[in-house]
C-alpha cells in the first residue's frame, strides 16, 4: 500500500533531503504533532548549515522513537529509555558529533529518567528534544509521568491522581544549561529554539508540547488534534525566563512557553580535562575525541 501511494507522487518535497523516503508515509496518526516537530528539526539543521555527516539522531521507543528511522542522518533506535546513555557513549567516543536525542516523554523521563538527570548533572554536550504528548501513546494510552492531574488515560479511567513532572524544572535543577518549551504550533519559535539548543555547548533541553489525537484527545474528549492546536493557540502564554516553579501544566490549563534557562557552564569533557590536568600536570594529554588516536 505505502509503496503504491508513494509511486503516485511525482513531485519532490524540499524536506525529502533529510528523510528516508523508503519509510515515508510515516505511521503517525492524522493530526499528530510529531511530523511538525521533525520539520522543525530538519529546518533548524538546514538553516544552521551543519555538515550532516557530523549530526547523529538517537531515539528510544514509542511514537517519537520512530524519528530515528525516518531521518536520513546517522541515527540509532535504542531500547526503551536508553536513548540518553547511548547518546552519552556516542558523545564520549566522538565529541565532534552533534548528538541530538529526539524522544518522547515516556521514554526520556519515565523509563530513562535516571539517565536523563545524571546526564544533565554532568552537563554532557548534547541536545535533547522531548516531545511531550502527556501519555504513553504507542502502547495504548497508559498514564505517563507527565499526564496532568485529573486527565484520563487508559489505566486511569476515573482521572489521574498522581502529580506529573514539571519537565523544565527537572531539567534545569538537574543542571541543563539551556531549557525551552514550545508547542507544536509555534513552529518558527520552536525551530529557533532547536537551532539555539544545537549551537549551545552543554546539555540543552527543548520540550515540545504535541497533540495526540488518537489517545489523549479521544480518551479526554478534547476533539481532534486540530482542536488541540487551537487550544494551544488560545492558551499558550509566552514568558521567557519564567520562574520554573510556575510552569506546571494542569489539565487544560494555560501553558507557559518560552526560553527559560540559557547559562554557561563547563561541559563534561571540559571538566574531565581540567581534572586530568590538576592531577597529572603537564603529563596529561587532553581528551578531545577523534578517531581513536588521542
Amino acid at each position: 500500500m505505502s509503496a503504491k501511494v508513494e509511486e503516485l507522487i511525482k513531485e519532490e518535497h524540499p524536506m525529502e533531503r533529510l528523510l528516508r523516503m523508503d519509510r515515508i508515509p510515516h505511521i503517525w496518526c492524522p493530526t499528530c504533532g510529531l511530523g511538525t516537530t521533525v520539520t522543525a528539526l530538519s529546518t533548524a539543521l538546514e538553516q544552521l548549515q551543519l555538515d550532516l555527516n557530523n549530526v547523529a539522531v538517537v531515539s528510544g521507543i514509542g511514537c517519537t522513537g520512530r524519528v530515528a528511522g525516518y531521518m536520513k542522518l546517522d541515527s540509532f533506535h535504542t531500547t526503551h529509555g536508553r536513548a540518553v546513555p547511548f547518546a552519552l557513549g556516542l558523545h564520549i567516543a566522538r565529541p565532534e558529533l552533534k548528538t541530538i536525542v529526539f524522544s518522547g516523554d515516556g521514554d526520556l523521563i519515565s523509563i530513562g529518567g535516571n539517565h536523563f538527570i545524571h546526564t544533565a548533572r554532568r552537563n554532557v554536550d548534547m541536545t535533547i528534544i522531548c516531545v511531550n504528548n502527556f501519555i504513553y501513546a504507542m502502547t495504548g494510552g497508559q498514564v505517563a509521568p507527565t499526564t496532568p492531574l485529573t486527565a484520563k488515560a487508559a489505566t486511569t479511567p476515573y482521572g489521574n491522581w498522581e502529580h506529573p513532572f514539571n519537565l523544565p524544572l527537572l531539567a534545569a535543577s538537574s543542571g541543563a544549561v539551556y531549557v525551552a518549551r514550545w508547542t507544536a504550533l509555534h513552529v518558527r519559535r520552536l525551530t529557533a529554539a532547536i537551532k539555539e539548543a544545537i549551537s549551545k555547548r552543554g546539555f540543552s533541553f527543548v520540550e515540545v508540547i504535541a497533540p495526540c489525537s488518537t489517545l489523549y484527545a479521544r480518551i479526554n474528549k478534547l476533539g481532534t488534534g486540530l482542536d488541540l492546536m487551537k487550544f494551544y493557540h488560545d492558551n499558550s502564554v509566552i514568558r521567557h525566563g519564567a520562574d520554573l516553579n510556575d510552569v506546571d501544566i494542569d489539565f487544560q490549563s494555560k501553558i507557559v512557553v518560552g526560553k527559560f534557562v540559557d547559562i554557561e557552564k563547563p561541559t563534561y569533557i571540559d571538566c574531565l580535562n581540567e581534572g586530568g590536568k590538576r592531577a597529572f600536570g603537564d603529563k596529561y594529554k587532553p581528551y578531545g575525541g577523534g578517531n581513536g588516536n588521542n
Partner: peptide, 13 residues
C-alpha cells in the same frame, strides 16, 4: 511557508 512547516505529513510546500 507556514503550511509547509505545520504539515505533519510533508505533503505541501
Amino acid at each position: 511557508d507556514l503550511c509547509e512547516m505545520l504539515c505533519p505529513d510533508f505533503a505541501i510546500y
